[in-house]
Amino acid sequence: MKTHSTNYFDTFIEVAEDTKASQGTVPPCKNGKKTVAYLQYELIAGYPYQYTSDDVLFQIHAERNAIAEADYSAAREQFFSKGQPCFRASPLTKTYGFGVHSNEEGKMAVYGLESPEYEQLVSDEKIKKVKAMKATK
């Protein structure tokens, strides 16, 4: 079975050109439930450079679908048997003002648009830059 990956390496995903955000903002919960954006933020900001994009996306999928940890291996293989949207399409980069940096191992951290780290990553010529997808068409 072919597996697809959303991982980036040595890459910085800049916020979308049309974002209304001027700084990184923690995504809100809705009706007391954690949104996908909030779960992404919680995992990446809470554990910088510990998870790859694939790890984060699968973990959220598993949590939202109540997949038992014993079934993770098969469920992960099934999940990545078809393409998944990468973090260029994440609400963190499109709406909430966060850039996502993936290091040489593909592990991620988030940086608010207003942070000195964000500016440093944008100006680092050794790191590949890609823009998040536009929030509007």
Results as ranks from 00 to 15, higher is better:
residue 70 A to Q: 13
residue 85 P to I: 00
residue 1 M to T: 08
residue 40 Q to F: 00
residue 107 K to Y: 03
residue 36 V to N: 11
residue 81 S to E: 12
residue 30 K to M: 05
residue 71 D to Y: 02
residue 62 A to P: 10
residue 84 Q to D: 01
residue 31 N to P: 01
residue 118 Y to S: 06
residue 74 A to R: 11
residue 20 K to G: 12
residue 86 C to Q: 04
residue 62 A to F: 06
residue 21 A to N: 14
residue 73 S to T: 14
residue 52 T to Y: 06
residue 107 K to S: 03
residue 114 E to F: 04
residue 120 Q to V: 00
residue 21 A to Y: 14
residue 26 V to M: 07
residue 59 Q to P: 01
residue 84 Q to A: 00
residue 115 S to P: 09
residue 53 S to K: 03
residue 136 T to M: 01
residue 134 K to D: 11
residue 48 P to H: 09
residue 101 H to C: 02
residue 118 Y to N: 09
residue 22 S to L: 09
residue 72 Y to M: 03
residue 73 S to K: 15
residue 106 G to C: 08
residue 47 Y to H: 15
residue 6 T to A: 12
residue 137 K to D: 04
residue 69 E to M: 00
residue 87 F to H: 14
residue 58 F to E: 01
residue 134 K to E: 07
residue 76 R to F: 07
residue 57 L to Y: 01
residue 39 L to I: 02
residue 100 V to Q: 06
residue 126 K to P: 02
residue 18 D to R: 04
residue 37 A to Q: 08
residue 69 E to P: 07
residue 76 R to V: 00
residue 93 T to M: 08
residue 119 E to W: 11
residue 83 G to Y: 09
residue 110 V to L: 11
residue 66 A to S: 14
residue 91 P to K: 12
residue 72 Y to E: 02
residue 16 A to I: 12
residue 110 V to C: 13
residue 3 T to I: 04
residue 114 E to V: 04
residue 48 P to N: 10
residue 74 A to Y: 09
residue 131 K to Q: 13
residue 132 A to W: 10
residue 49 Y to W: 08
residue 8 Y to P: 05
residue 33 K to S: 07
residue 133 M to C: 08
residue 25 T to Y: 05
residue 106 G to W: 08
residue 55 D to F: 04
residue 77 E to S: 08
residue 79 F to S: 01
residue 38 Y to N: 11
residue 70 A to H: 08
residue 53 S to Y: 09
residue 125 E to M: 04
residue 28 P to E: 14
